[in-house]
Nucleic acid binder design. Structure first.
Length: 155
DNA sequence: GCCAACGTTGGC
DNA sequence: GCCAACGTTGGC
């Protein structure tokens, strides 16, 4: 099993939206980057866990944990001309974009802020912390996962 | 297939 | 709001 990090802007869809969602489950859609798409389509497996990360907000950081409950399938928002995520080059016969379904596992009592991750010397290799990284779907190593979940419990 | 221009991301 | 980083587009 693998570990991931999923970025979202809390003003659009934050962890509290997921808490309130039906079955605390949502479709992770609207990803329009090929590298991130490949992760969603090919590499994410049912049962994988992911950090739920808040970006572009006052205090960016990890807000909780979600589980992949449905593996990659076509992102239908790309077929909808009224959607913000519409892409005329993606068709139902030949879909270009994929999504997964995720379910809430845990909302952290306190957000684990980005600055705290940066302050931990054992996380300097983490992709999230690398300069210039903008991918909205990122792999997380098992070691990084273990370190961060420990940091959360120690709070 | 190169590469300049442009758009987006996202921390600060 | 700024700006560095990086992906995408499109002319050639």
């Amino acid at each position: 099993m693998s570990y991931w990090l999923l970025k979202t802007e809390p003003e659009t869809f934050g962890i509290d939206n997921l808490v309130k969602a039906k079955n605390q489950t949502t479709m992770w859609e609207g990803v329009r980057n090929y590298q991130a798409r490949n992760f969603l389509q090919k590499e994410m497996k049912k049962g994988d866990l992911a950090f739920f990360y808040h970006s572009s907000c006052e205090v960016p950081g990890i807000a909780g944990i979600v589980e992949i409950v449905r593996e990659g399938y076509p992102d239908e928002t790309a077929f909808d001309s009224t959607s913000d995520y519409y892409d005329p080059k993606s068709t139902s016969n030949n879909p270009r974009w994929y999504r997964v379904d995720v379910k809430l596992v845990e909302k952290f009592k306190q957000l684990m802020p980005l600055h705290a991750l940066r302050a931990n010397p054992s996380l300097t290799e983490m992709k999230l912390l690398q300069k210039g990284n903008r991918l909205s779907v990122l792999p997380v190593s098992q070691q990084e996962w273990r370190i961060i979940t420990k940091m959360v419990k120690a709070k």
